[in-house]
């Protein structure tokens, strides 16, 4: 039971945040506040997405050290562009490793991932570039291990896909806010108010006036 709660309390708090935003949208009459509520609602959904991409013991999905080179040294050994890459992100490794938030998180070793495989599972190496082949592989857990083996990686990364989706969603969110605010500004100029109740009253007046004409 405690485990059940501990594995989910994160989601519950995020749900509460989402609902706070949604409540502001529906309950407040001020158009600007409605937009801020909408923003809150969306930001909370972003948190929800990022929460589900977190992997315990994982680190930010930026390949650390020269692993890419280790794995593919034979392919393009001595390539100049590549070696500059190596140094460039080598620096980053340091900055991330010293980040207190990541301390202790970043060391899930390959043996451990190994241990989680079922005994009969073979760790064959997938052919280069066979995306579909790999994608349809039987055990997802095997993929991680395989990937780790293929590239000599010792680090477990958090899931990059939710991050990408949310980057897109953040942009969509700010675009919506901008359009909504420009509408609110125009409404204020046309009606003299941005309160829903008053707007409705004015619109009703307009309607009645039109019927009389």
């Amino acid at each position: 039971m405690i485990e059940f709660i501990l594995a989910r309390y994160n989601y519950w708090i995020v749900i509460a945040l989402m609902m706070t935003g949604l409540y502001i949208v529906f309950s407040r009459g001020n158009l600007v506040k409605t937009l801020i509520g909408l923003n809150l609602f969306q930001t909370s959904v972003f948190i929800f997405y990022i929460t589900m991409g977190k992997v315990f013991g994982g680190t930010a999905p930026i390949l650390l050290g020269g692993h890419a080179e280790e794995g593919h040294g034979e392919e393009h050994g001595g390539d100049h562009a590549e070696s500059t890459h190596g140094t460039a992100y080598g620096e980053h490794e340091d900055s991330y490793a010293s980040d207190p938030l990541h301390e202790g998180g970043a060391v899930n070793t390959i043996e451990e991932t190994h241990a989680e495989l079922s005994p009969g599972e073979s760790l064959h190496t997938a052919p280069e570039g066979a995306v579909n082949e790999l994608a349809r592989a039987e055990t997802p857990a095997g993929d991680v291990a395989k990937a780790a083996l293929d590239h000599g990686t010792e680090i477990l990364y958090s899931n990059p896909l939710p991050h990408v989706l949310i980057l897109t969603a953040i942009v969509v969110g700010v675009a919506t806010t901008a359009v909504g605010l420009s509408l609110a500004v125009r409404i204020r100029e046309a009606y003299g108010t941005v309160e829903e109740d008053r707007l409705e009253a004015i619109d009703n007046q307009d309607d009645r006036a039109e019927v009389l004409v």
Binding site: A60, I62, H85, A88, Y89, H92, L167, V171
Partner: peptide, 8 residues
């Protein structure tokens, strides 16, 4: 390409 960040 190397660290966080990009065009946006």
């Amino acid at each position: 390409d190397y660290g966080p960040g990009g065009g946006f």
